[in-house]
Computed example of a mutant assay.
Amino acid sequence: MDDQQGNHAPSLAGLRDDLRADCEKCFGLCCVALPFAASSDFAINKDAGTPCRNLQADFRCGVHQSLRQIGFRGCTVYDCFGAGQKLSQETYGGRDWRRAPELASQMYGVFPIMWQLHELLWYLTEALTFHAARSLHAKLDDVLQETKRFTELAPAELLRVDVPAHRAKVGELLREASELVRTEACRKQKGARIKARNVGRGADLIGAKLKGADLLGANLRGAYLIAADLRGANLRWADLIGADLRDTDLRGADLTDSLFLTQAQLNAAKGDAATKIPPSFTRPEHWA
């Protein structure tokens, strides 16, 4: 993120790597613990705690190469932020729900908690790279360390973590960091794009025609951008935390320095070779 970044990036690189899903080290927890309903994202209904019919004995997906084609697009969008392998290999020490069925119910309850904690770690590690938010770095690091400690708890203790309260605390710090970064970015543009910053949290922009829009520094936190046309839009330093980008047309858009972007958001959107994304992200295969 250019000169908006601080000097924490190298020290956080290792933690960021642990926040990337590694399905080879997971026991298919997302394919069992989480429910889904028949929709444009899933071809069937599945209850929480019931293994997906496509999950094989080795915990791999039997239809991984054709998920989008056969109606399981939601699976290609999902990202556990490394919570699956954390639980599988560390919290439960390699014991899986098949060989230890007495732990299965607990695993299914703990998984969503670990998932949320890892998501918060993803955002916190990014916020600590923002040079413009350096006044908040001490507080951000404190809450990051607290979040890490939660992820290291035993299962029974994890179930007692007040996740909503912790999310609220982290969310407020992330909001403050975002405001500092976006204000600085807009100031350097001599105020020409200050108006764009006032789109507003949770804005309903479903199907909006925003082709070529200058949204530099925009507050798009939690915005509904489902099927919106953002072709060629400038989203540099726009806050995208929690924004719904399902079927958002990002062809030719510039997300180079967007804040709090996730791989799952990119996977849910439409893009092409001209879409500019941060170098740490993977261009989704279906964009081709």
Rank of each mutant, 00 (worst) to 15 (best):
R221Q: 10
L153P: 06
K188M: 09
L215T: 08
W237N: 10
A268Q: 12
G212L: 04
S258E: 09
V199W: 04
L250Q: 06
D254K: 12
T262Y: 12
A269F: 03
D249M: 09
D254P: 12
G271W: 05
G202C: 02
D162Y: 11
A177D: 02
R197D: 00
F150E: 01
L259V: 07
L240D: 05
A243G: 10
N219L: 03
A228F: 04
D229C: 04
I226F: 14
G171C: 09
L266P: 05
R197A: 07
N219W: 00
A264G: 11
G222P: 07
L220R: 01
L259A: 00
E152F: 10
G252W: 04
I241T: 08
I206M: 15
T248A: 15
L216V: 13
V161T: 08
R251L: 01
A218H: 01
G222F: 09
D244K: 11
K195Y: 10
G202S: 02
G242E: 01
A213D: 05
A196V: 03
G222Q: 07
A218G: 01
G232Y: 11
L235F: 04
L173N: 13
A227V: 06
L216C: 12
A154N: 10
V163R: 03
V181Y: 05
E176Q: 15
A227K: 14
P155T: 07
D239S: 11
D239M: 10
G171M: 08
T183W: 05
L225N: 04
G271C: 04
Q265H: 03
S178H: 00
V181K: 02
A228S: 09
L210W: 00
Y224Q: 14
S178A: 10
A168T: 11
A269C: 02
K169G: 10
L261D: 08
D249E: 14
A177M: 06
N234P: 03
L220Q: 02
S178P: 04
K190W: 15
P155W: 03
L205A: 01
I194C: 12
D162V: 08
L235P: 01
A228D: 00
R231L: 07
D162A: 11
N219M: 00
V161K: 02
L250V: 02
L173Y: 15
A203Y: 07
L261M: 12
A269T: 00
T151W: 13
I241F: 07
D162H: 12
E184N: 06
V181E: 03
L220Y: 02
V163Q: 00
L255D: 03
Y224M: 11
I226T: 13
G171E: 06
R175Y: 13
L245R: 05
R182H: 01
E152A: 15
G252T: 01
V181G: 01
L245C: 08
F260H: 15
E152I: 09
D254G: 14
T183F: 08
E172C: 09
I206G: 15
A208L: 01
D214N: 15
A218W: 01
R246Y: 13
T256G: 12
G232C: 12
V170D: 06
K188I: 06
K270G: 14
A253N: 03
W237K: 05
T262L: 11
